[in-house]
Simulated assay, not measured.
Amino acid sequence: MSVMELKSAREIDLMRVTGEFVAQVLTELGDRADVGVNLLDLEHHAREMIRRRGAESCYWDYAPVFGEGPFRNVVCLSVNDAVLHGLPHDYTLRDGDMLSMDMAVGIDGWVADSARTVIVGTPAEEDLRVIRATEMALDAAIEAARPGHRLGDISAAIGAVAADYGYPVNTEFGGHGLGRTMHEEPHVPNRGRAGRGLKLRAGTTLAIEPWFARTTDRVVFDPDGWTIRSADGSRGAHSEHTVAITADGPRVLTERVLTR
């Protein structure tokens, strides 16, 4: 992890340019995710959008200690009980599938990272419920991302929404700082204690990403070395935005205009 770097107002504006592009890609992928569509088609569409924009994928050649690297794709596509880091592969989407999409790119040296979960075809209420929980947790965490607050306030806000919904929370994988690179300090757990931790300052930029599986906080890895599944096979959802903490409050840099 890199040392946390406070960003200037101009640098935050540049991150917003990247964030708008990430939001556009995730919107288009969500619109294309339909019954009969192959995950590899979504991957290749994302690649083409990145190529045309002159952006740089943060995922391509990414090789963290927990993965079977290097990652040779530009988007994570996680289906049903695959809750994080889904490796795009030859799979055709079926009616009722839950699809989580996560991507980070850099433009002119500035990174943005975001994720969303959609239902393919006919939704089940229990799937919509876990998606709503992650979205509400993200909203609550963003509201807590203000100068003078503590990092634990963000984590506690996420954990409180999970508790309200009755979902367990995994703390191995969570949010993070970002800016010039995809991962900077600090780590942002999805559960914590309010009033504890790092004091938040204007210029801090964070990827805040609540994700919940319905009935477990434990995970297992697929043989591909990347795809992370809930240990009990329960479905999960993932919502993420890049957020800048400013003197005027939180600023969402990856906000989307959704059509579904």
Rank of each mutant, 00 (worst) to 15 (best):
M1V: 12
M1I: 09
S2D: 12
S2A: 13
S2P: 05
M4I: 09
K7E: 06
A9H: 10
A9K: 13
E20V: 09
G30M: 07
R32Q: 14
R32C: 03
A33F: 03
V35A: 02
H44Q: 12
H45W: 11
A46C: 10
M49E: 15
I50S: 15
R51Q: 12
Y59M: 14
D61Q: 14
D61L: 13
Y62M: 12
A63D: 14
P64C: 01
V65P: 05
G69H: 07
P70G: 05
P70Q: 06
P70I: 01
R72G: 08
V75C: 06
L77H: 08
V83N: 01
H89S: 15
H89C: 12
L93M: 08
S100Q: 05
D102S: 12
M103T: 15
M103G: 02
V105S: 11
G106R: 15
D108C: 06
G109V: 11
A112R: 10
A112I: 09
S114R: 07
A115D: 03
R116T: 14
V118A: 07
L128T: 06
L128Q: 10
V130W: 11
R132M: 11
M136Y: 08
A137E: 02
A137T: 01
P147Y: 15
P147D: 12
R150W: 06
R150G: 05
A157W: 11
G159N: 09
V161S: 04
V161G: 04
D164T: 14
Y165S: 08
Y167S: 03
V169R: 02
T171P: 02
E172T: 13
F173D: 00
G175Y: 02
G179W: 06
T181M: 06
E184A: 15
E184P: 03
E185K: 13
P186C: 14
P186V: 14
P186D: 14
H187G: 03
V188H: 03
A194W: 01
L198N: 04
R201F: 04
A202E: 12
L206P: 07
A207S: 15
I208N: 11
E209F: 01
P210N: 08
F212L: 12
D217Q: 07
R218L: 10
V219K: 01
V220W: 04
F221E: 05
D222N: 06
P223G: 03
P223R: 05
D224R: 09
D224W: 11
T227A: 00
S234E: 00
R235F: 03
R235I: 09
H238P: 00
S239M: 04
S239H: 10
H241V: 02
A244E: 07
A244F: 09
I245F: 03
A247C: 04
D248T: 01
P250K: 02
R251P: 00
V252Q: 00
